[in-house]
Design a protein around this nucleic acid. Structure first.
Length: 480
RNA sequence: GGCCUUAUCGUCUAACGGUUCAGGACGCAGCCCUCUCAAGGCUGAAAUACGGGUUCGAUUCCCGUUAAGGCUACCA
């Protein structure tokens, strides 16, 4: 196999889609696996859909995910520029070549005329397709229209009846009959190319060996094959990836949940977890391993093991995956990640050793760094409210009396250790002749405001006795 | 409507004609552990869309049906 060159070619319409992330990932893995080159190319040929800052966002998100590209915008490379809007003359040149060779032709139809034509065809129940009225124009008529500045497009001339076939790495041989193919617009009236022209021209000029992209492109591939043939170019290998799906099995869309990688990033998912998760949507190693670092994936990946059917983007498994990665992080790492989130919530001034203890207690109970705050805010501030169900169930007539005993016992406790605290609590319970549980549950409520969390004595040792006593007193003041 | 693609537990998937009561994972249920919640351990329910072939033998190959999805733009 000659030197592998692959590309990820998103259009900058705002954010990186998780489906795009997987496409980028598979391209990246394939390139690295074969010591090839991974190229980022920006397909910004639709001026109406441009979004400010989208390219920077795309690059930033790719970097976050760990997918470094070798050539692309901002990075340069032998085939620069890698932004299609900066390559307009190249597309025009090739369009003109096709024009000269009569493999393409000018058309001057207005959007209204095309719309009308489509409606008529629909009514007659025939497949909507350009009727080639522009081909009836004489050379002189075309010249005249061009000269007078009437908006013109260049359309490719698809052969009447011919079988267009190609071999897809994932799907095998796929055949189309050319009479079903439309005379695709190649160059728009604003001078920009359509995807089809720009894509084929760039893939050839950039020496792309494998086109790895989503299945939504499968139907337009015969047009691309025809274009390669018209231009006399070698056809790259195609690999059309199965789609990522909504729970209802339609193509993954914004309507049914988060599709932007940055949404998951903002929610605190680890890049390794998201990457690992999407890698397994359509690909598997053939055995029962599921946790893979990017390096592992590079080693194991192959297009041959990519499946054919669409995969539902299953949030629950992503959560599990993220939890797996969280458990694997060191407590030090987690403290480092937690600190800025605390600061953002206006919670500062905690020592590393304090946060290390919090992380130690909560690590097995949270699924993301965010959850250290949402599930255990009581480590960082006194409870603002108390779980009502737990209060009703656990706060009895004798509670305040026994908690006062506990507070007193804590005051007297010299080294405030978990075992020492446990002793205090059990002694207080014994003194009033009640079970330890009768103390533990209301005590937890008084200290944390909630009914769940880590072992109470460890938790109290971390909070420290001043905080514990203060919270006990304020709960007693509140509930009597 | 036309063209193309796809079809194993709810979901992600394994089994590339034969040591398969169809394996694993997520999720779910139960039990154990236990001061709660988790974690952990154990157990369980849960699938080859349907109908024809081919074959000694089909989840696996072929055909049809059905269903789902994609495409059908001067969007990518």
């Amino acid at each position: 196999m000659s030197q592998v060159r692959v590309r990820f070619a998103p259009s900058p319409t705002g954010y990186l889609h998780v489906g795009g992330l997987r496409t980028a990932l598979y391209n990246y893995l394939f390139a690295r696996k074969h010591q090839g080159t991974f190229i980022l190319r920006i397909e910004d040929t639709d001026r109406t859909r441009l979004v400010e800052g989208a390219v920077e966002n795309l690059i930033d998100t790719l970097r976050w995910a760990g997918l470094e590209f070798d050539e692309g915008p901002g990075k340069g490379g032998p085939d620069a520029p890698y932004v299609q809007s900066e390559r307009l003359p190249i597309y025009r040149e090739h369009a003109e070549r096709l024009l000269r060779e009569r493999k393409a032709y000018y058309a001057f139809d207005t959007p209204e005329e095309l719309e009308e034509m489509r409606k008529r065809q629909e009514k007659m129940r025939i497949p909507p397709k350009y009727d080639r009225r522009a081909l009836k124009l004489t050379a002189a008529e075309v010249e005249l229209k061009l000269a007078s500045g009437i908006p013109a497009v260049v359309r490719m001339k698809v052969p009447e009846t011919e079988t267009v076939a190609f071999d897809d790495i994932i799907r095998g041989r796929v055949e189309f009959s050319s009479d079903r193919l439309d005379d695709q617009v190649l160059l728009k009236s604003d001078g920009y190319p359509t995807y089809h022209l720009a894509n084929v021209v760039d893939d050839h000029l950039m020496g792309i060996t494998h086109v790895i992209r989503g299945e939504e492109w499968l139907s337009s591939t015969p047009k691309h094959v025809l274009l390669y043939r018209y231009l006399g170019w070698e056809i790259p290998q195609f690999a059309h990836l199965p789609l990522l799906l909504n729970p209802d099995r339609s193509k993954l869309s914004k309507r049914q949940g988060d599709v932007a990688v940055e949404d998951y990033r903002a929610k605190g998912f680890f890049p390794e977890a998201l990457v690992n998760f999407v890698a397994l949507l359509g690909w598997n190693p053939g055995d029962e391993r599921e946790i893979f670092s990017l390096q592992d994936l590079v080693r194991e990946f192959s297009l041959e093991r990519v499946g054919k059917s669409g995969a539902v983007f299953n949030l629950e498994k992503l959560h599990w995956m993220n939890t797996e990665y969280l458990r694997r992080r060191s407590n030090e790492d987690l403290v480092t990640l937690l600190r800025p989130k605390l600061a953002a919530a206006g919670l500062e001034g905690f020592s590393d050793s304090y946060l290390m203890q919090v992380v130690g207690l909560m690590k097995e109970r949270v699924n993301s760094v965010e959850e250290f705050l949402t599930f255990s805010s009581y480590f960082f501030r006194d409870p603002g409210s108390y779980d009502e169900a737990s209060r009703k169930k656990n706060w009895t007539a004798e509670t305040s009396t026994v908690l006062r005993d506990v507070a007193q016992g804590l005051d007297a406790l010299a080294p405030c250790t978990a075992t020492g605290i446990e002793e205090v609590v059990r002694v207080a319970a014994a003194k009033r002749g009640i079970s330890a549980g009768k103390v533990i549950h209301p005590l937890r409520l008084a200290l944390t405001g909630v009914a769940l969390g880590p072992g109470l004595f460890e938790l109290m040792a971390v909070l420290g006795k001043e905080t514990c006593v203060r919270r006990i007193e304020s709960a007693i003041a509140r509930f009597g």
